[in-house]
Design a protein around this nucleic acid. Structure first.
Lengths: 210, 210
DNA sequence: TCCTGTGAAATGCTTCACAGCG
DNA sequence: CGCTGTGAAGCATTTCACAGGA
């Protein structure tokens, strides 16, 4: 029944996103309710795990029936804070930054991309996902104007820490880091890193021996 | 003391990639040895954790000195199987597929991108990262010819499972999935998923309450 | 009956703390 | 000294198993 992030096991939080994805799929096919067992099976988890994860936030299942899909979706969005739009910006308009910017799912998932930045003068002014690429100098104004809380970092490894420092200084609280380098941030800031090479290494290891 | 993947805690395997990244950075600045404490500090981990993770695979530190950077890099690459080139292919030549293909770090990390596929006729033949986009019909030939073991999936969610099924049928053992949908695969196949929306949700949750 | 919510047990992972080596 | 490697302790997460509601 607790709600504070620190009280919920981290692995459970990661699974909540999976539940939400799956529930959205179910809603799209007009499924009204789903049991913890069915939800678990579709994600290769156990039913007890699904129930326990959801129970961290309250009791919204009905014995004998299961969970109502649409209300549970709304509840999960509320938990994530994505029932309201969160403004997000991207720094780095290279291949990866542009690809992420082009991802159409932001709005439907509760995020709105409000600006794209790059330090390369040649890229300034070009349109990326209908937004003009802006120079880093304009970060303060944009962050203030749109009350941006989260940033996506798609810059080269060498520039990542400096850009992150600047973003944090300007009030950004969460950073999704695509650079293959770990960021040092104060504990008040959260980062998640996506490193394609590291993921491939994991796969290579896990598929190797046996 | 070398173990099969199943004996090593999953979180430890994930950290090994971080160690390798950091060691490569150290090697680039000609640092010869590093202690578990220093390595840990640069990654926000504890020294005991670093030692324990490495000890799953043998003893390669020297008391009083630490770990020799270059030999440890080689050892880690051996553990991951990236001391030899692993052939990899990408399915999906959309924005994301092209961005991942353009990522220059494959070769240096032990992976070689050998082919790019797409089901859209209009994309066939276009060059992506110096490789011509091929139709899915040519998957069997390419996988056989290059002995491809791993695939990167950058197709729309609706197509992901079908493409994964086909890849597995053709002998692919590891799949890096960028589609926002969970894949159902036999236990002989390993998948890792990268879901930008899910990562943003995590950030949103972790930065929301206190 | 089917299904949730949840204590209790089991498992897994991290941290501690220290013997022993260079 | 400084530092590793590692049992043992401590903590976190998952699984079990069942009472009770619809």
């Amino acid at each position: 029944m607790s709600r504070s992030p620190s009280d919920v096991p981290n692995p459970a939080v990661r699974r909540l996103s999976l539940y939400l994805r799956q529930l959205e799929t179910l809603a799209a096919t007009d499924v009204a309710t789903v049991s913890s067992r069915k939800l678990a099976q579709s994600l290769n988890l156990t039913d007890a795990q699904v129930r326990k994860d959801l129970a961290y936030f309250g009791q919204f299942g009905r014995p004998g029936v299961g969970y109502e899909v649409v209300p549970l979706i709304q509840r999960l969005r509320g938990i994530f804070g994505t029932d309201r739009t969160t403004h997000t910006l991207i720094v780095g308009a290279g291949n990866l930054g542009r690809a992420v910017a082009a991802y159409g799912g932001f709005r439907a998932k509760g995020f709105e991309l409000v600006a794209v930045f790059d330090s390369d003068e040649k890229k300034i002014g070009r349109k990326v996902a209908r937004l003009p690429v802006q120079p880093l100098e304009e970060l303060p104004e944009v962050i203030n104007k749109h009350d941006v809380r989260m940033a996506i970092l798609a810059v080269p490894a060498g520039a990542a820490q400096a850009v992150a420092d600047r973003l944090i200084e300007l009030g950004i609280r969460g950073i999704l880091n695509f650079a293959p380098t770990p960021l040092q941030v104060p504990s008040s800031v959260t980062t998640r890193s996506v490193d394609v090479a590291a993921e491939l290494e994991q796969l290579s290891f896990l598929t190797s021996a046996e």
